[in-house]
Amino acid sequence: MHMKKLALSLTVALLSTGCSMMAPQYSASIENVQTLKNSGETKVSVGQFASTPGPGNAYPISIRGSSMSSPYNNSYGAYVANAIQQELALANRHTQAGNLEVSGVLLKNDIDAAGFSVGYVTVEARFIVKHNGATTYDQVKSVKQEFPSSFAGAVAIPKAVQEYNFAVQKLLGLVYEDKAFADAIK
C-alpha cells in the first residue's frame, strides 16, 4: 500500500510541474506568398508589432500547465512580424526600409487545449499600413482555429503547439486577401 501511495505522489508531482517549451519557428504559407505575389510588386517593410498584455493575451501561452514561449525576441508580436516578413520576402516584396510599412498590435493570443476532443487557437491583431507616414490601412483581424484534441496531454499539447503556426498563417491569409490591404500595399 505504501508503494502505491508513493507512486501516486510521484505521478501527481510530475503532472503538476509544467514544462516550458519554445514555439516552433514560423513556417510560411505557400498560399499566402502567392496572394502577396498576385497583389503587386511594391516593396514593403515590416515595423514593430506590439503585444497588448491582458486576458487572452498572456506571455508565455499556457497549455495544460505547460508554457510556450515565442522563438522571436520573447514576443508573439515579434512572431507575427517575422511571419509577415518571411512571406513578403518569399513573394519578393520585402525591403528593410521603404515608404510602405506594415506594423500592428497583437490583441489576443491564446491556446485552449483543455477540451478532451476539441481545442482552439485564438489570434487577433490590428494591422496598420503606413505610406510615407500616413495611415492607409488600419483593421483588426481575428482567427479562432479549431483542432482535434485529446484527453492525453502527451497528444493534446504537441497538437496545440503545431496548430499555432496554422492559426497565424490563417490570420495573415485573411489580411492579405483583404482588398483594402492589397490596395494599401500597391
Rank of each mutant, 00 (worst) to 15 (best):
E146P: 13
E87G: 07
A134C: 07
R126K: 15
V121L: 06
V161A: 04
S149W: 06
H131F: 14
T135Q: 02
V161K: 01
T95M: 00
T95F: 02
Q96Y: 03
F116S: 15
L106G: 07
A114L: 12
V121N: 06
A113M: 05
Y120I: 11
Q85G: 05
Q86V: 02
G115Q: 06
N132A: 08
V143L: 01
F151I: 15
E101R: 05
N82T: 13
V123P: 01
A125K: 09
G98I: 11
I128F: 09
Q86K: 09
N92G: 09
H94K: 02
N99R: 13
N82M: 14
K141C: 10
S103C: 11
F127R: 04
V123I: 09
V118F: 15
S150M: 10
Y137R: 04
G104A: 11
S150E: 09
A91E: 04
I157Y: 09
V140N: 14
K159G: 02
V161H: 03
A134Y: 06
F116R: 14
L106F: 10
G115C: 06
F151M: 15
A83I: 07
L100V: 00
T136S: 00
K144A: 10
S103G: 10
L90W: 11
N82G: 12
T135P: 04
V105K: 14
V161T: 04
A83M: 04
A152Y: 15
G119T: 08
L88G: 02
N92C: 09
V143T: 04
I111G: 07
V118G: 14
N109C: 03
G153D: 03
I111S: 03
E124M: 14
V121G: 03
G153S: 01
E87A: 01
V123H: 02
G119E: 07
Q145L: 10
Y120F: 13
H131P: 13
E101S: 10
I157E: 02
V155H: 10
V105S: 15
I111N: 05
E101M: 06
V123A: 00
A89D: 05
A83Q: 08
P158N: 05
L107D: 14
Y120T: 11
D112T: 03
L100I: 03
S149N: 07
G133E: 05
V161W: 00
V155Y: 12
E101I: 07
G119C: 10
L107Q: 15
I84R: 03
T135Y: 08
L90P: 10
K159I: 10
K108N: 09
F151Q: 15
S103N: 09
L107M: 15
Q139D: 07
A81F: 06
S103K: 08
N109R: 01
G153Y: 01
V121E: 03
Q85K: 05
G153P: 04
N99F: 13
V140E: 15
A91M: 08
T136N: 01
A97E: 00
S117Q: 08
N132S: 09
K108E: 09
E124Y: 14
I84A: 02
T136L: 00
A134S: 07
V123D: 00
A83C: 06
K130V: 00
G133T: 03
T122R: 04
V102M: 02
A114M: 12
Q145R: 03
Y120R: 11
K141Y: 13
H131I: 13
E87W: 02
N99M: 14
N109G: 02
N82K: 12
T136I: 03
V105T: 15
I128D: 04
F116A: 15
V105H: 14
V129I: 06
E146H: 12
